[in-house]
Amino acid sequence: MSPSSSFAPVIPGSGLPAGSPAATTPKQIPHRGGPVNPTVDALREKFGAAIQRVDVVWGETSVVVERSRVAEIVRWLHDDPGQSYVYLSDVTAVEFRDVEQPLEVVWHLRSLAFRRFIRLKALLPKGTPLEVPSVYPIFKSADWMERECYDMFGVKFVGHPDLRRLLMWEGYKEGFPLRKDFPLRGRFSRAEQLRQALAANPEARYSKEELSIADAFEDLPQDMRARLRSGEKTGE
């Protein structure tokens, strides 16, 4: 509404040299190989051994990085004017059906100025604590995405100020739904699920201090606790 003579919109692609062709729909993308995102060279130069592996799958560059240095690397990608990955598209995790394969935490970043897309990955081998540094101090958008990832996979994002369940209710006792050992229909019988859901107070305002998943275990039915303690997996 105000006169906006000084207004300058942020135009994506502004970091590219003048006269660069406009972006086009990618065609005939090879399965493996293909052009590597130029950021990878800069990353290798800057972080060296922390860059563990680089794959180009279906035209997208995936960089596997050391899990403890993720926040540092993302911070550099965000701040460096030659990269300017200012847009965090997604944070999520992948667990494979092969139980030996490590769980992956995946970050999708976009550099609007250079029209680049990069995927960062941290591998979390089974048996190690599922912890990675949070990128919340860099991207506010990571807030709910990390909370969701914690809710669904149990991955702890160290440094997130308010890491608690987001989609399931606080005190949900069955575990982390998107883990592969979690059966599709849940661990409990339908009647038990409904009983627990109806017992929830719809007006509760949960805070992080009040409840945690570990406490909820004690509220389980007696037989369920015994079965889970004996290491039973209730898969289908």
Binding site: S189, A191, E192, L194, R195, L198, A199
Partner: peptide
């Protein structure tokens, strides 16, 4: 239990 119908009936109704 706060349920209207017995748990066994709920389980039966919810069978895939």
């Amino acid at each position: 239990s706060q349920l209207y119908i017995p748990p066994s009936a709920i389980n039966e109704l919810s069978e895939p």
